[in-house]
């Protein structure tokens, strides 16, 4: 019996050793691209273009990759920042209101139009891009950040509504009814009872929308003029073009990734909740 226990302990220990080494191995594999992007971005253009030495450390650290890319892409980063701030704020507010209505006010037909709303977040945006384009032009919103904000807000309605709806459903109805007895109407209940409880919901939605919009490409490349392009567009061009100086696309990739990475690392727990919420079931 004792021998058996010991054997068990041993296998258990052995297994943990295996598990740790597997995890470390996987982590290293996942970090390969990170190593590559950092190393390449710190090489000078000639060194960075050499494929055969791509794994080597830079012979001399070349910060100019970042300064030159920064000079070039700062306006685009500013555009992205403007876009994300505007679109995330508005779509979080809209989603909160919709979620409140759908979770707490039995609207007739909701079971019919709610799935129709949700469908909007799965469609390939290629299927609407040509009419969208003409429409934006027609209402004079083609070309600038406001138009792009509108588009992201609209196509963000399904997911933000869904997240808030699932969040608000857990607020007990009694709480709301107590508010109603105190004389609060639709808005009173929202501002006094629902909204103050909404912080976690807002965090999840803001993180989700922030990363989605920052990372988006198709609308960015088709709906705005060069001057207002978000960061993903020039990034795709530097890499897709005739790049031989790979330090630049790599430095640009780092710049473009920092904001979302920052959000992810600082608020990782909420980020994961957002991810899970995105899978409907929550």
């Amino acid at each position: 019996m004792k021998a058996q226990m010991e054997a068990r302990m041993l296998t258990r220990r052995l297994w943990r050793l295996v598990a740790y080494s597997l995890l470390i191995l996987m982590a290293l594999i996942f970090l390969i691209p990170v190593y590559m992007v950092i190393v390449t971005s710190l090489k000078n253009p000639i060194e960075a273009g050499q494929e055969t030495t791509s794994w080597n450390l830079p012979t001399k650290i070349y910060w100019e990759s970042f300064s030159s890319v920064w000079k070039e892409l700062a306006p685009n980063l500013r555009n992205s920042a403007l876009l994300v701030t505007g679109a995330t704020t508005i779509s979080a507010l809209v989603g909160s209101m919709n979620g409140y209505v759908l979770a707490k006010w039995r609207i007739r037909g909701a079971s019919f139009f709610f799935p129709l709303m949700l469908f909007g977040m799965f469609i390939p945006y290629q299927a609407i891009i040509i009419p969208l384009f003409k429409f934006m032009d027609g209402i004079n919103l083609y070309g600038g950040i406001p138009g792009l904000v509108l588009v992201h807000v609209v196509y963000g309605i399904p997911i933000t509504t869904l997240i808030f709806r699932n969040f608000y459903i857990d607020i007990p109805n009694e709480l709301l009814e107590a508010g109603a007895i105190d004389g609060a109407g639709f808005f009173g209940i929202y501002t006094k009872i629902v909204f103050p409880l909404s912080l976690p919901g807002f965090v999840v939605v803001v993180i989700w929308q922030f990363t989605q919009i920052w990372n988006e490409f198709l609308f960015a490349v088709t709906l705005v003029k060069d001057k207002w392009q978000p960061i993903t567009v020039p990034l795709a061009e530097t890499a897709g073009g005739i790049a031989v100086k790979w330090n630049q696309p790599m430095a640009a990739a780092i710049l473009a990734a920092i904001p979302t990475l920052f959000v992810y690392i600082v608020m990782g727990r909420w980020f994961i909740r957002g991810l899970l919420a995105g899978s409907i079931k929550g």
Partner: peptide, 8 residues
């Protein structure tokens, strides 16, 4: 990697 853009 999930937090990155497909473009990145």
């Amino acid at each position: 990697p999930m937090s990155l853009s497909f473009i990145v």
